[in-house]
Structures are given as C-alpha cells and as structure tokens.
C-alpha cells in the first residue's frame, strides 16, 4: 500500500459525513442520532458531520422499519450517495422490523433492499452505541475503499452504560 492510499484510508476513517434518513421510524432513533451530536456526546470529535444532501455523505444512517412508501425513496437515496459508501441501520426496526413484524404496511427488514454494513440494535439505541456504530462503519469504509460491499454484517455492541 503506497503513501497516498494510506493517507486516503486514514482520512476516510476520520471524516465520516452522515446522511440521516427516516423510513417510517417513530422518531425515537432520530432524536438519539441528533443527541449524539450534542455537547454531551459530541460526535464531531470523530469528524462526524450531519449533511443535508446525500451527495455529500459517506455513511447513510437509516432508521425505521421500512414502510412500503419508503422503499423507493431508500433506493433513490442509496443511489445518490456516491461511493465509497456504507450503510448503518439504527435501531431494532430496520434490523428486524421490531414490534411491527408481519404488519401489512411494511416491506422490511432493511437488508432486503440495500446492503447494510452495521446494525445498531436498541429501541432506541443509546447515543454512545450510535457513535460506536458510525465509527465501525467508518473503519469498514476505509478498509473497503472503492470495492463493492462485503456480505459480512457487523453488529455494534452497546457500550457499558456511562452514568453522566
């Protein structure tokens, strides 16, 4: 690996820009994702930036159990995020559809539609867990580069609870 590739790898690991998408979530995970950027958790220390446009993003964060209406939007947004990219499924809903399982309004779980790299379980997951998931996704992104997504799935463990 030459110097430029090493630098690129290091930069990708230290500058994950997120795009947040809600596919029918109850808003619990969305609130926790935003909480991970607030002063107490401060994800910007890892270079995380929440972007408004999927074109700018490296990591697609999807919450919610994937409703029928959201499927087309998920495909559009996934294609709009430019490579190299990673997908983080936040909460139990995109992983298993959670308590909404067998609902006729759903077309989940998420990995039926797009390749998911990291699952962050929880209903909702703690902000620490979300930050750990994003950091893992950034590592995967750096290791993978421009190669196609691997099939191996990573489940971010919830870190030991730290009482503020």
């Amino acid at each position: 690996m030459n110097l430029w590739n090493k630098l690129m790898c290091y930069s990708r690991r230290h500058s994950p820009w997120l795009f947040h998408m809600n596919s029918g979530s109850c808003n619990g995970c969305d609130i926790e994702l935003v909480a991970s950027l607030t002063p107490r958790y401060d994800a910007e220390q890892l270079g995380v930036r929440l972007e408004g446009s999927p074109r700018h993003a490296d990591i697609l964060c999807i919450t919610g159990p994937v409703t029928h209406n959201a499927v087309k939007a998920i495909h559009t947004v996934y294609d709009q995020v430019l490579g190299p990219k990673a997908v983080v499924a936040i909460g139990s809903c995109p992983a298993t559809t959670n308590v909404f399982i067998d609902s006729r309004t759903l077309d989940g779980p998420l990995n039926k539609h797009i390749p998911v790299d990291v699952f962050v379980p929880g209903c909702p997951p703690r902000p620490d867990a979300i930050i750990q998931g994003v950091a893992k996704a950034a590592e995967i992104l750096a290791a993978r580069g421009n190669n196609p997504p691997a099939t191996e799935i990573v489940i971010a463990e919830t870190p030991a609870e730290v009482q503020p």
Binding site: M8, S11, P39, D42, Q45, G47
Partner: peptide, 16 residues
C-alpha cells in the same frame, strides 16, 4: 460547550 473537531479535520475532509 463541545470539544470540537481535531486539528487536521479540514485536511482529512479534503483528502477524503
């Protein structure tokens, strides 16, 4: 009241 990005952050963003 946050710590904020590391010193080399804009450089990493640029390279990425």
């Amino acid at each position: 009241g946050r710590v904020g990005p590391p010193f080399m952050q804009p450089f990493f963003d640029f390279i990425k």
